[in-house]
């Protein structure tokens, strides 16, 4: 009897925690293998709703439309002139804001419309680069306006009222036409 109580008091020492590190290591390695660090970033767009009827013809003044065509060779035609993707952003900015009051550029940012048309053979990379440049042009214009009006750079975190004021002044209007199908699809 006495012997039993003695062994009990001997057992009172702590649990050996040295294997804890190994267990945690195993868990860590398991998670490292089964998970991925994802870059969940991208360009968010809002697609227009689908309708069976052909859209009604809009009469737009030619000077307000910024027509961008991308062909199957990934070449750009902007308002009838070939252009490099590099210069698209600045050109689009100039067209939208029209600081020089040119006759053939947009009357005002409110009237400007970007029309983007690509071919079914256009590379996705090129398409996204063009879309990115056009979006960047607007972002830069919003930024400028926001700096002037509110003294801080434009971002999506700003209150809705500020963003609305900015977007009322310079609305982002990009219409994508049904693509042509001249080029080879791969």
């Amino acid at each position: 009897m006495a012997k039993g109580s003695k062994s009990r008091s001997l057992m009172k020492n702590e649990i050996n925690a040295s294997s804890m590190a190994d267990i945690a290591f195993l868990l860590l390695i398991f998670f490292l293998v089964t998970t991925t660090i994802v870059e969940d970033k991208g360009i968010t767009v809002k697609l227009p709703p689908w309708s069976e009827e052909p859209p009604e013809e809009l009469k737009l003044k030619g000077r307000n439309v910024y027509l961008v065509l991308v062909n199957a060779q990934n070449q750009l035609l902007v308002r009838g002139e070939p252009m490099e993707i590099r210069s698209l952003r600045d050109n689009a900015k100039e067209f939208i804001s029209n600081p020089g009051g040119r006759e053939d550029y947009a009357e005002s940012p409110k009237n400007a419309i970007i029309s983007l048309k690509n071919d079914r053979g256009t590379n996705y990379e090129t398409y996204l680069a063009v879309y990115n440049e056009l979006k960047a042009a607007y972002n830069e214009l919003w930024n400028d306006l926001c700096q002037r009006k509110f003294g801080k750079p434009y971002s999506e975190d700003l209150p809705t009222s500020i963003r609305k004021t900015i977007k009322d002044e310079i609305p982002f209007v990009l219409s994508e036409a049904e693509p042509t199908s001249f080029g080879n699809e791969q």
Binding site: G42, K46, P48, P49, W50, Y124, E185
Partner: peptide, 23 residues
């Protein structure tokens, strides 16, 4: 990838009504 297949996906998304898209 060429835009043809992307366009088909986009059209399908529009027909279904899934309009919020992230490239």
């Amino acid at each position: 990838v060429t835009m043809g297949i992307v366009q088909d996906v986009k059209t399908q998304l529009r027909k279904y009504g899934q309009l919020k898209v992230n490239y």
